[in-house]
Design a protein around this nucleic acid. Structure first.
Lengths: 220, 220
DNA sequence: ACGGACCTCCCCCGCGCGGGGGAGACGATC
DNA sequence: GATCGTCTCCCCCGCGCGGGGGAGGTCCGT
């Protein structure tokens, strides 16, 4: 019997592409589609797919949250293949923590996409497929943002420091951050200094850039 | 005779999606694909498509540059339909200046994609299709970055101010920007002040945030 | 009971930043 | 020729920022 797949992506075009790629295979069948994470659980209950190909960035409920909700509330849950435009440390780790089984780049070649679906259906984990490593290498000899990603991945910010960085990335001053967190400005300065040191940033502007480049905060 | 289309996108998945959507129509035929802007011109010369569906962000040669090159070096050039993930003021204006005939969101519904291809093939301009306006409205009742986009769209930065903002968004200090542009630091301060005023930003951090949120600079 | 990580707050100090204002030079437009 | 926009440079001034220290508290694992 064929591998059944549920597609979850807010862009119809991506769904159509995945469907075209997967249905070209005799042993894979696309049994349904959803445009946002909130629609996934009832669909999974009804269709019982083997694999859910899940986009990360979606309205209402993102792929990470949807994965978490799915594994928590459905018994004998399907395998989760997280689909994203590029490897993003926060997403990768978030997806792993949420319990995803595989990770797939949208820019992967059709054969790799098919391969990924088959693998996770067989129970294999596909956390760092070749395409991800290839892309990482590609970015490595590129210019800068790979460095930003690495820095933030290695930075190991504490929870508080992460909060502060997020507020910095919203354009708040130290005083405003202090008010928001209900602490003193000197406290915020300490956190900011720690963030700058861990990120290797010279000033808050560079820290915010690193936050965007690494995907720690997302535009849009 | 059918409308012939050439697909240009670096992601095979998107190409497959467009192909699936367009080939479902009896009067549209996909005659070729290219994965980067550099491959477009010889393909157009050989295949003579009616419409080129062109991605904006591509390796080697982006969609804007490829459009410009195409219109400059091919006689009786095809209609150019610029395809992008979301409306981006810089891209829109860049595409218009380059001579694109239409603008299309990847997240548009299949029927809209088909409609857009037919329209530009007939010689119509499709600069602000309904899907763009709908998305804009969608973002409007969202949180913040619509505001950033608007600000930057209305800002009408001069060329120099745009250069300065780009360097700000790379984390350079005023002195470093001055060195890079071979001008005095006082000059840079003037440009920075102008940028802040036009963007309604309080400091360079907020300006950089606006640059990211509006797509003026792109992460990754 | 002890070290260690984390959050909290405090001091001093230098400096880059941004606001305010002004001004000269150039090109395009009218 | 006059006007306008743009790019260039200059002044003064206040202040937020970031570096350098130090120090108290809680909680946790050993």
């Amino acid at each position: 019997m064929p591998v059944t797949v549920l597609l979850v992506d807010d862009e119809p075009l991506v769904r159509a592409g995945l469907r075209a790629v997967l249905e070209a295979q005799a042993d894979i069948e696309v049994v349904g589609e959803a445009a946002d994470g909130a629609a996934v659980i009832p669909l999974v209950r009804r269709l019982r797919p083997d694999v859910v190909a899940m986009d990360v960035r979606m309205p209402l409920l993102d792929g990470i949250e949807a994965t978490r909700a799915l594994l928590r509330s459905v018994d004998a849950p399907p395998k989760i293949l997280v689909v994203t435009t590029f490897e993003n440390d926060e997403y990768v780790y978030g997806a792993l923590r949420a319990g995803a089984d595989g990770f797939l780049l949208k820019r992967a070649r059709p054969a790799e996409i098919v391969h990924a679906v088959r693998l996770v259906a067989e129970g294999e984990s596909l956390l760092f497929p070749a395409s991800v490593r290839r892309l990482a290498a590609q970015y490595a000899d590129g210019d800068g943002n790979r460095a930003a990603r690495d820095r933030l991945a290695r930075a190991r910010l504490t929870e508080r420091e992460g909060e502060v960085l997020r507020l910095m990335a919203r354009g708040l001053t130290n005083a405003e951050i202090a008010a928001k967190l209900v602490v003193g400005t000197e406290t915020v300065k300490s956190h900011v200094s720690a963030v700058l040191a861990k990120l290797g940033a010279r000033d808050r502007t560079q820290a915010v850039i690193a936050a965007y480049e690494s995907g720690f905060v997302a535009p849009g």
